[in-house]
Measured scan of single mutants.
Amino acid sequence: HAATELTPEQAAALKPYDRIVITGRFNAIGDAVSAVSRRADEEGAASFYVVDTSEFGNSGNWRVVADVYKA
């Protein structure tokens, strides 16, 4: 099962156990969220919340930071 994305309210009520950072070329924010979901799932997380997204220069590469939560 894939890790689910939390709302800001849900994330605020929970304590993350880790923070992950992924970088890559994403065509849309949805693609980045899917990549975070896969990584969170690999780490055994039940859910995640994207904290920050930023573009690296003009290369089209993105850096996505997310907190991950157990259950």
Rank of each mutant, 00 (worst) to 15 (best):
H1C: 14
A2Y: 14
A3Y: 03
A3N: 03
A3P: 13
A3M: 06
A3D: 02
A3V: 11
T4W: 10
T4Y: 14
E5W: 07
E5P: 09
E5M: 13
T7D: 06
E9Q: 10
Q10A: 08
Q10T: 04
A11M: 04
A12T: 08
A12L: 09
A13P: 06
A13L: 14
A13Y: 11
L14T: 06
K15L: 09
K15R: 10
K15F: 08
K15P: 05
P16A: 07
P16G: 01
P16W: 05
P16D: 00
P16Q: 02
Y17M: 04
Y17L: 03
Y17P: 08
D18C: 15
R19E: 01
R19Y: 06
R19S: 05
R19A: 02
I20T: 00
I20E: 02
V21D: 04
V21M: 07
I22F: 03
T23M: 10
T23E: 13
T23Q: 08
T23F: 14
G24I: 08
G24A: 06
R25I: 12
F26L: 02
F26G: 02
N27T: 11
A28S: 15
A28T: 15
A28E: 12
I29H: 10
I29R: 13
I29C: 10
G30R: 13
G30D: 12
D31L: 07
V33W: 10
V33Y: 10
A35T: 05
A35Q: 06
V36N: 01
V36E: 03
V36F: 01
S37P: 04
R38D: 05
R39H: 06
D41V: 14
D41L: 15
E42W: 08
E43D: 11
G44Q: 04
A46C: 11
S47W: 15
Y49F: 14
Y49K: 04
V51Y: 04
V51A: 02
S54K: 14
S54C: 15
E55W: 12
E55T: 12
F56N: 09
G57E: 10
G57Y: 06
G57Q: 07
G57D: 13
N58W: 07
N58G: 13
N58E: 14
S59H: 08
S59P: 11
G60D: 06
N61H: 14
N61F: 15
W62E: 03
W62D: 00
V64R: 05
V64M: 03
V65A: 03
A66C: 06
A66D: 01
A66H: 01
A66M: 08
A66Q: 01
V68I: 15
Y69K: 03
Y69E: 01
Y69C: 03
Y69A: 01
Y69R: 00
K70Q: 07
K70P: 06
K70A: 10
A71F: 12
